[in-house]
Write a protein that binds this DNA or RNA. Sequence first.
RNA 1: GGGCGAUUAGCUCAGUUGGUUAGAGCGUAUGAUUGACGUUCAUAAGGUCAGUGGUUCGACUCCACUAUCGCCCACCA
Length: 889
Amino acid sequence: MIDPAYNAKDHEDGIYKQWEDSGVFKANVDSQKPSFTIAMPPPNATGVLHLGHAVMLAIEDILIRHRRMKGYEALWVPGTDHAAIATENVVINNLKKNEGMKDPRSMGREALVKRIAEYVAESQGTIRGQVRKIGASCDWSRERYTMDPALNRCVNEVFKKMYDDGLIYRGHRIVNWDPNLQTNVSDDEVDYKEEKSPFYTFQYGPFQIATSRPETKFGDKYVVMHPDDERYKDYKHGDTFKAEWINGEVKATVIKDKAIDMEFGTGVMTITPWHDMTDFEIAERHKLDKEQIIDLNGKLLDIADEFAGMPIHEARELIVQKLDRKGLLVKTDAEYVHKVAINSRGKGVIEPQIREQWFIDVNAKSVPWKGVQMSLKEIMQHVIRDKAISIIPERFEKTYFHWIDNLKDWCISRQIWWGHRIPVWYKTDANENEMHVGTQAPDGDGWEQDPDTLDTWFSSALWTWSTLVDPALAEDHSLSLQDLLQKSPDFVKFHPTQVMETGYDILFFWIARMILMTTYVTGQVPFETVYLHGLIRTREGKKMSKSDPATCINPLDMIEKYGADALRMSMVIGNSPGNDMRLYEEKIKGYRNFTNKLWNASRFVLGILEEKGVTEEPAIKMDHLSPFDEWILTKLNRTITSVDDHLMNFRISQAGEELYSFMWDDFCDWYLELSKGDNQNPTVLYHVLKNLLILLHPIIPFVTETLWSHLPATDDMLIAHEYPAVVAENKGEQGFEQTELLIRLVTSIRRLRAENKVEPAKKVSATLHAHDQLELITPLKEDVIRLARLSELTLEEKGEKIANAATDVIGTIELFLPLEGLVDMEQEKKRLTKEVANLKQYISGLQKKLDNASFVQNAPPAVIEGEQAKLQEARAKMEKIKEQIDGII
RNA sequence: GGGCGAUUAGCUCAGUUGGUUAGAGCGUAUGAUUGACGUUCAUAAGGUCAGUGGUUCGACUCCACUAUCGCCCACCA
């Protein structure tokens, strides 16, 4: 016999190994079955798995296991992401902290990249182990890493294609420069933090201008105001004037531009195009000079004269003092709150700079798509509008479109060392500069590769298909990208993928970019459905952060304590797409109790099977079913249909809840309770348990697989077992309805007993002789005995009396006789009366609709027929209920 | 400033396209527990579904407005 309690720890690792060794995770590319593919969002190769990953893995594993059992060729491609900035940053900090290095970059590019690669290799191992812990049934034979050679080939190919198509260009543009990490970051990676800093107003010629950044003001020679500002209508665009400024007199020019907010400050500002986004745009519009004030390390340049070489934060106060001495400081607002731009990866302060960078042009109409030239932006909009991709929940489609509307050219170059190197080479000769864009270094001497690397999201954007490219074929550089794709069996079989499942927080970073790149390159959408799960929050609703272990739940600790199954279930039930969910230990514990309940219910059933000598799967004898057997089988059938439907439509939480309630409320609390005594039907017990295990398997794979191995005559593994169709035809709904009625009656009795309204023994003996039609219901007798047991009528009764008493209860229902006191018929009547009233209104509504001439003329015939059918049905139902009411009276 | 969402039991949350008496888990109260159960079972208490108006035979569900909370984007020189 198996253990009296389920200890997840004792089983999970062994089970996972069995699965993995058996090869079920591995998808067969030659299979004739329809494919179902998920590309796993690659966790950053920087360390430890957190709850965000855990919930992603749980949801995807449920989908994959369900589809696999349903007979799809299910492929789940695992992998890791090199996470350029994040990883480089972690390693550099480690080197500083652990090895006391002041500037790890001084070891040189090659050496540092090697150190990072070592770190990644180690941390990948950790991640692989943790993904297994959660039970992810992914195809490890196809594991990929964004820096694999084949994926690098794809990156280079795409870069070249885009360059050739005129979609990638190089230009001087203002970027978010992080002086700390010495790189720029994309707009999406900039966070804003509120900070108090003094806000100064200075006299600048005839104007007063306000700033919180006096250190950028050395080169200011333009004053900008709104063209409609009445206060400054005497100044014309292009007027010049002289102004005393930080380091002497400057000649300034008046610029009128609508970007100015008249309400803010004095309505006039000076601009610093080299170090401010808005200023840069104004300067571009009016073709103004741009001058660099601050160097890439955050120090002032020669233009600052006496302040040159000083870090800006030191210079600021001194500059203000100097202007004050010159009488140019008008006022200081020390309480001013403004937002400081922070690099979300490294937490350094952003100092905008103009730099030469590589960009992807999202507006150029140079992509052929279904016969028309489109821009990347338009393609991104198109596939969603066309429903080639649907997003769950749907409202994120709006967010997506909104984001695209505001999308600017995507800056893809980064000045860090870790990542895909930009596939561009330069050769500088005495009299000419050459540039080569290609997938490999050009022949000949003197070529030097662009030092920059690509934005991580560039390679991530190819993930759904770059992972399916055949690595061996990718070494053959005579193949074009299109050939490479078409000759890669995995790509042909498994792309487009079916589902992309991830947190909504990376909709823009990643989802949008995959759509852009993949559709452009392959002509296929990357996935058919995007499922966005909510973020896991603490009990208080806060974000979980690694830095605060008190609020942060570590998934691995929870697995250790309660098992992966319990954790999975707790993350999935009550988690609706797009909405955040709070998670805390008690919740996980609750689902641990569920796995334990399942364990014990199974033990109970297995005990009976053993007792009855069941050693192989028994066939259900349809003639020998009691009403309760039929009831549980009907319940099971309904559960199968409904759970399957939920999972096919991504309502995972609903599926989980229904299974929870079927297992606990229906199977354990009713059916198993009734199976105590001599009344078991082992065939039904076997069937229900078996199918219950199958249904639960995608959600809680470990405990179900363990139990499966104890079920007689199941030699295959549950993971590979087929999903059930409806179990067995049973005699129909009549027995079911009758039994439901019984259950309601028992509940009634229980309630009344609890309220001490009935003395069972007395009541029973009083009604015992009232009916002589007991013969009619003898087939139910057996069940009634058990029922009576449940209803606790038996406590002081014995033998035959019990049977009679219970039979009497049944008889009462059968004949619709009122049992005042026993059943609350008043309540029943009220309920039915209300339902009749509702139905009446419903019917009159439908009638009205059907009488409406324009409806009859315009609606499709099928709809009209449907409405008529509804009407018939409602009428029939009403008649039936009316009869019932009459019966009561 | 622009956009999106939330508001349902003491707590955490479900509620698929409008339709029986609005559900679950936890918590609380009472009772039970000699065929499985880290306990479990039974029963109960607890909700004007944020507010106001509208559409409908019928609204937690659809529409408008209001209030509170949250998120995203833009941005303040």
